[in-house]
């Protein structure tokens, strides 16, 4: 168990360091002058120098990385927009909860829809219900958010007028963004639930449960589904990071004031420091969620860590 934990931590830490290096040093790897790329060739010399200083390009590489880490840790990191005064961290502190809220609601929605659908589909294997559910899940992974979101807005906000289209306050405002964000995951999870239920259903202990005369309902929900859900929930956890990344698109569609909107706005304003802080925060979250999921899975199912340890 210790070796398993150590390996997981190590990979997580290396990933975070890797992203830190990428976001700090990537500008140096570009051929030509990075500042030209960012400001355009006609920018004045004063602006260039100020930008160089704000993003640490005037420093040697190791100092640039160190300064960035130090500034993030102490909260001293400032935007790289003139006049270089606003701090980045309070901005992120304000936006991050909104993105987390959206992602968590979307994930719960996906799980709540996918599990019943997948179980139903497995129980009716080979029937029209099963085929219908699986075609739905194939369609679900094929629909781009950038299309689904606008369609939902048109139908439910504009034509039916049931829900607010953009922005808005309260619980109603989150419904359409959460559906948009969750569809892909919902589709994928329902497929996984189906195949997992079918796998478990063939296990000996399920036959035993039936043989001893338990009601079919008890067998399915107590014995089959409970075991089948372990891998499904794990995948859901691992996909949470993808959901966070997907939220960037959803936020743009619905004008949701979260991290994604901040990231895209900062990119458009060429506010490089905010961009890299956002990327780093997203990555840290992603890595942490994966780490926690992995460890939780290792604790629930000891086979995993044994097999992982031998590798």
């Amino acid at each position: 168990m210790k070796a398993f934990l150590a390996r997981r931590f190590l990979a997580a830490i290396v990933s975070i360091i890797g992203v830190t290096l990428v976001v700090t040093l990537f500008l140096r790897a570009i051929p030509g002058d990075a500042v030209d790329v960012m400001l355009g060739e006609q920018a004045g010399e004063v602006d260039r120098e100020a930008l160089r200083e704000a993003i640490g390009l005037h420093l040697p590489p190791h100092m640039q990385v160190w300064t960035f880490i130090r500034d993030i840790a102490t909260g001293e990191l400032r935007t790289s927009l003139p006049p270089f005064r606003a701090r980045v961290l309070p901005l992120i502190g304000e936006k991050l909860p909104k993105t987390m809220l959206l992602a968590v609601v979307a994930m719960l929605l996906a799980i709540a829809m996918a599990i019943p659908l997948g179980v139903l589909s497995a129980r009716k294997q080979g029937t029209a219900t099963d085929h219908g559910a699986m075609i739905f899940s194939l369609v679900g992974v094929s629909v781009p958010q950038a299309w689904l979101g606008p369609v939902l807005i048109l139908v439910f906000a504009i034509h039916l007028g049931w829900l607010p289209a953009l922005g808005g306050e309260g619980a109603r405002a989150i419904v359409l963004p959460a559906i948009t964000l969750s569809l892909g995951m919902m589709a994928m999870l329902s497929r996984m639930t189906r195949s997992s239920v079918l796998d478990v259903n063939r296990e000996d202990f399920v036959t035993t449960a039936r043989a001893k005369g338990l009601a079919e309902r008890t067998v399915i929900w107590r014995h089959v589904v409970r075991n089948a859900l372990v891998p499904v929930i794990t995948i859901a956890g691992l996909q949470f990071g993808a959901l966070l990344a997907g939220a960037i698109v959803t936020e743009k569609i619905f004008n949701w004031p979260g991290m994604g909107t901040l990231l895209i706005e900062s990119i458009q304003r060429r506010d490089y420091n905010t961009v890299r802080a956002c990327v780093l925060v997203f990555t840290v979250l992603y890595v942490l969620v994966n780490l926690v999921t992995d460890i939780a899975y290792g604790i629930v199912d000891p086979r995993i860590r044994v097999r992982g340890g031998k590798r």
């Binding site: 990537f26 790329v37 994966n290």
Partner: peptide, 17 residues
């Protein structure tokens, strides 16, 4: 390590820069 990256986010960063 690469799998631990959110791929689309890295792509966003790279294309943005």
């Amino acid at each position: 390590v690469v799998l631990a990256f959110p791929g689309i986010l890295l792509a966003i960063f790279i294309t943005a820069v």
